[in-house]
């Protein structure tokens, strides 16, 4: 593979970070978080190519994907619960998490 994927990784990471910093909607925050996660996954796969251990890196990436699925499911469930309770998705209303 002759192309360098590293710029794409940074582009994806930047997009996700931008999304997280600017948005207040919970769903959009989740999308931003997922973009970050995908950037990391891509980075893992690319590192496998760079170090010539593609099978190791790819199995790691698969693991990350599987874990992300669970994270998304839980996150969505929490968002759903929050929405049912307060009828909106604004993070400014979400200030009572302090333990």
């Amino acid at each position: 593979m002759s192309e360098n994927l590293l710029p794409y990784v940074f582009v994806l990471f930047g997009l996700g970070l931008f999304c997280l910093l600017t948005q207040r909607n919970l769903i959009k925050l989740l999308v931003g978080l997922e973009l970050l996660g995908k950037a990391t996954t891509l980075a893992i796969v690319w590192s496998g190519v760079l170090r010539n251990t593609p099978d190791y890196a790819q199995s790691l990436a698969l693991m990350v994907i599987a874990i992300e699925v669970m994270v998304v499911a839980i996150f969505l469930a929490l968002i759903n619960a929050f929405h049912q309770k307060s009828q909106n998705l604004d993070t400014d209303d979400l200030r009572r998490l302090k333990g």
Binding site: L29, R95, K98
Partner: peptide, 14 residues
């Protein structure tokens, strides 16, 4: 560390 603001939590993730 537990501020109660979700943005801080997101910052930790990032």
């Amino acid at each position: 560390l537990q501020t109660g603001d979700i943005h801080w939590n997101l910052l930790y993730i990032v």
